[in-house]
Amino acid sequence: LEKEIAAKDQRAHEQQKFYPDLSGEIAGAVSKRSEPNLDRDFDTLDEPVWVTVKRDLNTVGAKFGLVLFPTQGNQSLLRNWDLWGPLFICVFISLLLHSSEGKMGPHFTEVFTLTFFGACIVTLNIKLLGGTISFFQSLCVLGYCLLPPGAAAVLCKVLTFASEQSSLLFVIRLLVTSVGFVWATYASMAFLAGAQPPRRKALAIYPIFLFYFVISWMIISHSH
């Protein structure tokens, strides 16, 4: 909801910013700015908390749906970003892959740091190469695209609980994880590839590929 308000405000602000250019007269701009906007539709102070939470959950769910069926034209994931989905999925994967003391696997913090700050570094790389996308938009896309690897992690965990360790099981796990990896890479590229100048597309895509590859490797080697 706050985000909606912020987006509305920003849009209104942008309109105001463009006014001087359009009219070329100061009087118009000043009067527009001082005039309070009374017909805004986000006055939701008196609604129940549950309604608010449900609406936010719906937005997050819709974004996860977008990731599962990515289309080049659908860019609404980029326009209204949020970090709830990335937070959920990061914590979820870290909990799944966490291994207790004395084992050789990663701890919760290690997985979480690697996924979250890995996404931050990949985003920073996109920005430094001159990408035309905001920091949080890219972070949001990378986080939401962790859904297929997350699903693969659940499947691997279930499979290991269900049956004995065997080479057939390993092959199945390998297949599931690689499907998740390809899916995540493809989805994130559908959203992010347009933001780069064509001469640098490969430079921006390689870190994304590496990021999902490393996460998939962690999933396949530590989800048992």
Binding site: N125, K127, L128, L129, G130, R199, R200, K201, A202, L203
Partner: peptide, 16 residues
Amino acid sequence: SFEYYQQFFDVDTDQV
């Protein structure tokens, strides 16, 4: 500033 670090990433694919 961000631009300071941007100058170290000013490369193209074929250059790399």
